[in-house]
Design a binder for these strands. Structure first.
Ligand code: FES
Ligand code: FES
Lengths: 146, 146
DNA sequence: ATAAAGGGTACTTATTTAGTGCTGTATTAA
DNA sequence: TTAATACAGCACTAAATAAGTACCCTTTAT
């Protein structure tokens, strides 16, 4: 099944929780409370987001995390790249990126690296949606009963 | 990690192996040989493809599978749907499709079903690529050393 | 100095996916 | 009408991956 990892899902929830207080600083425990997600997991996600420079971290007492950019300038692809590493839809694409040994299906395969086409299409699709787009406008009917 | 399942990958390889003999009938063991994939796995994939009507199966001695449509009319999305079921990029989308209980993040989440947007974008992307597109043109330089 | 907060890494557990095996049914041909 | 071939369906096992947890280190404000 083609699925976005739970951690990436959490990451989107965490980042979008900044929506009305962009630029503000929150500690990992504050973010856990605000999103109602378990603190250790939130902490793990925050570390990854900070490594990818989607969040800027401030250490020490009264430290925390703040957005490095506005939500409208962060794409879903950015988040996935931050959490899961570079998008590689199949093992074949992964090999191509890593420039490592040949694809396991080798000579017998009619595709010969053509998965890259699909990978690019998916990446473009994920790049089209910003986190701001992901936030539900206040008065819009919800598509799910969450 | 967002990744296409191995079985779906196999399915694409199997289906594209028909490229120069579309309309022809092959048994599961023939297809296994042609693609150099393990027979039990090929057999499993073929059953799924046949259930999804991408292949038409003929039982009994001299039976086998043949394409239900031309490769140019089968999309990567069709294959993924056949193997993995309807595309649902996150648990949230899955709930929405199943019309089941609410998303686990419930009230605290700013998204409220907005993953559907991303799901649709990805589905569109996968629908743009046909299996014919996936086949490497004979004289085109390969992008991978497979 | 001490407490608060992030950084990094490694380990364990849970979940998912892939792979295998078995039994049944349809079809052909001797 | 029997034997052989080939697909159908289900259920089980094993392997791979992802998620969650724990621990210890570094930074900074008071
Ligand atoms: S899948 Fe990699 S070359 Fe065929
Ligand atoms: S992720 Fe489903 S409503 Fe928030």
């Amino acid at each position: 099944m083609i699925k976005i990892s739970k951690l990436a899902d959490y990451a989107v929830i965490i980042l979008t929780s900044y929506v009305d207080e962009q630029g503000q600083l929150f500690s990992s425990s504050q973010l856990a409370q605000r999103t109602k997600l378990p603190e250790p997991t939130v902490s793990k996600v925050l570390k990854l987001l900070s490594q990818a420079n989607l969040l800027h971290s401030i250490r020490g007492a009264n430290g925390g995390y703040k957005l490095s950019a506005e939500l409208k300038n962060i794409t879903v692809l950015d988040v996935i790249n931050a959490i899961d590493g570079t998008l590689a839809i199949t093992a074949c694409v992964e090999h191509a990126n890593a420039n490592s040994e040949q694809c396991s299906h080798a000579g017998s395969c009619a595709l010969k690296g053509r998965w890259n086409i699909v990978n690019t299409h998916v990446a473009n699709a994920l790049e089209k949606v910003s986190l701001q787009d992901m936030v539900c406008p206040v008065n819009e009917p919800r598509t799910v009963n969450g």
